[in-house]
Design a protein around this nucleic acid. Sequence first.
DNA 1: TATCATACCTGCTTA
DNA 2: CTAAGCAGGTATGAT
Lengths: 211, 211
Amino acid sequence: MALTLVLESGSSGPSDDGRRREAAGDCSRPRERMFEKVVTPSDVGKLNRLVVPKHLAEKHLPLPLPLPGAAGGTVLCFHDARGEAAWRFRYSYWSSSQSYVMTKGWSRYVRDKRLAAGDTVSFCRDGARLYIDCRRRRRPAAVVPVPVVPPQQQQASLQAVQQRLVVAPPPRSMKEEEEEEARSGRCLRLFGVNLELELEPEPLLLLDLQL
Amino acid sequence: MALTLVLESGSSGPSDDGRRREAAGDCSRPRERMFEKVVTPSDVGKLNRLVVPKHLAEKHLPLPLPLPGAAGGTVLCFHDARGEAAWRFRYSYWSSSQSYVMTKGWSRYVRDKRLAAGDTVSFCRDGARLYIDCRRRRRPAAVVPVPVVPPQQQQASLQAVQQRLVVAPPPRSMKEEEEEEARSGRCLRLFGVNLELELEPEPLLLLDLQL
DNA sequence: TATCATACCTGCTTA
DNA sequence: CTAAGCAGGTATGAT
């Protein structure tokens, strides 16, 4: 269950491009931007693979060996936008479907980042170093305008909204997830609730509340 | 639909081990018993492979070459419990899943023996000679005790029971199936009904009635 | 083109 | 909690 809260941002005017990208998880810090993809349901589903559009793959990524089996393909190592973690994906060409795919390791990324259809993954490079990052799409959930209220009343407002929600089964390790989210900067912990964070073109603060 | 009939055995005292094993399809005639496996749906399905539990494989079977492709694996030749037929299976180690498998040839065995999930395959050896045998699982159907009745009343009893059963769709070739079953000694044709045969530790005659 | 066979892969499950 | 085993898959070449 997801709910989008729209709060008026305290900042005035359009935010600068760099800060917005940073908060949105776009990998603009590394030098060379390669490509992005808005992931499909298949990319984040049970097929455990990401299809890399052919023209992008051939333009930006090293050619994987077209051999079948373990001899074929390549293992690509991507760094997190913060350079902390490394993600290893098997990268192959599937001759049957004439397409380039990330296979092994991809499903873990989907799970760890809780990637959903419509989200965007972006690939960058800094010399030989590869980077991956992702950002949430704007959810098509109902937008609930929340009036700006004094801080002492905010908790009460959130609780009122929460009471209208059905709580989904909790993830395996709540603590782990919260910590990961907090570190990634894509989640804001507020009033004991993890809030997903997105910045819009408009000077709004969009909070995706995942319960 | 399956029904288990329990009849008191005419023989007195515990039956001798050899005869019981023989009737159950266990390969006790060859000297050294290796291991058994209750086959899973995957083992008899379209994956065309039998997973050999690792500890059993490493204890009893020769180490297959761990190379991929035709260079890897071994071909193992198994004799029927009667020593008549020989079954050749490719035996490999799949490093990706860390498991030992019988591949090529296995699906033919499944088909020829009409092996189903829950059935048991047993592997034995007599020196260098390898044996394979299988037996039907005991169906998890309700056990219906049938009192011992004079032979002239038995047919009537069975018919009375049959009337309470729902008849499942017939197998592909009934005649072929009956002949195969009769030859294998794993089925007893009685009153025009094929009965699967198992012997229990108790001096009971257990009949699995498959309708 | 359909089917089979090999070799990959992965989420559960459990010790 | 972690790691390993394995049941159940997919991908793709061979036939």
